[in-house]
């Protein structure tokens, strides 16, 4: 598996990680090696095999439609929600202006 620098840059951009040309060039063979190694999976015959969906035989539990039933998963906690924000103003999170 060979990965070129352009691919590394495209993936980094998808993952929103700024990357320099040098780092992309350095990372290309490294990613190529890792991907080459995991491609070993191609040799496994998986015809008729379902992909695993739940590691334990368990299905989804549903909760009742009650507001703030558990304070840990309820609302009305604006101070907590904003407590760690790098920039919060007037009850909002603030980010660099987005032009839509």
């Amino acid at each position: 598996m060979s990965v070129d620098t352009a691919t590394v840059k495209r993936i980094a951009s998808l993952a929103r990680i700024a990357i320099t040309d040098e780092d992309a060039a350095r990372m290309a063979p490294e990613l190529g090696n890792i991907l080459g190694w995991i491609e070993m999976l191609e040799e496994v015959d998986t015809t008729g095999i379902e992909p695993m969906t739940a590691v334990i035989p368990n299905t989804l539990r549903l909760r009742d439609d009650v507001v703030n039933a558990d304070p840990l998963t309820g609302g009305g906690i604006r101070e907590q929600v904003l407590a760690n924000a790098p920039v919060a103003e007037h009850g909002f999170f603030a980010v660099p202006k987005v032009i839509e």
Binding site: T7, M27, L31, V44, T46, I49, P51
Partner: peptide, 30 residues
């Protein structure tokens, strides 16, 4: 590195070859 690998294997055109195949192998391992 791991975010890059993960992003790559999920990206358009690769999902089935990598992720779906890995989850099938996971079924076989279980």
């Amino acid at each position: 590195r791991r975010i890059m690998i993960g992003t790559y294997v999920l990206s358009a055109g690769f999902y089935d070859a990598y992720y779906t195949q890995a989850q099938k192998v996971r079924t076989l391992i279980a």
